[in-house]
């Protein structure tokens, strides 16, 4: 019984998260400006991190947690670098 509940609810959550990633991708493609695309990429990273956590709940695997942590860290660093680039046109001054 509880296996059915977990599989179904996590599947629904993963569909919702996949739709969220689609919305972020649409904004990433459409733009219209560079800052919109960077914001969409950052949102995409967060959605992917949450997706990893739901995979962890689904399978009971602990490794997904570490993957989620790494995605969070890389997403932060990437977005900061891109925002810095937008501000001045170069990453390292």
């Amino acid at each position: 019984m509880s296996a059915t509940i977990i599989i179904w609810s996590v599947s629904i959550a993963q569909i919702l998260l996949a739709l969220a990633m689609v919305a972020a991708t649409l904004r990433l493609i459409k733009g219209p400006r560079a800052q919109d695309r960077v914001l969409a990429l950052d949102t995409f990273y967060v959605n992917a991190m949450l997706m990893m956590l739901t995979f962890g709940i689904r399978t009971g695997g602990e490794l997904y947690f570490e993957a989620a942590l790494i995605i969070a860290v890389l997403g932060f660093v990437g977005t900061v670098a891109l925002a810095k680039f937008l501000m001045r046109g170069e990453v390292i001054e």
């Binding site: 509880s2 977990i6 998260l17 990633m21 959605n47 009971g60």
Partner: peptide, 28 residues
């Protein structure tokens, strides 16, 4: 395996996961 969860925990975990995913979807 998550199937070993007791029923009450499975319901709470499922509801929280769907709720979090729904908020994320609305944000995106």
């Amino acid at each position: 395996a998550p199937g070993d969860l007791p029923l009450w925990a499975a319901i709470i975990v499922g509801a929280l996961t769907i709720g979090g995913a729904a908020f994320t979807l609305v944000g995106s």
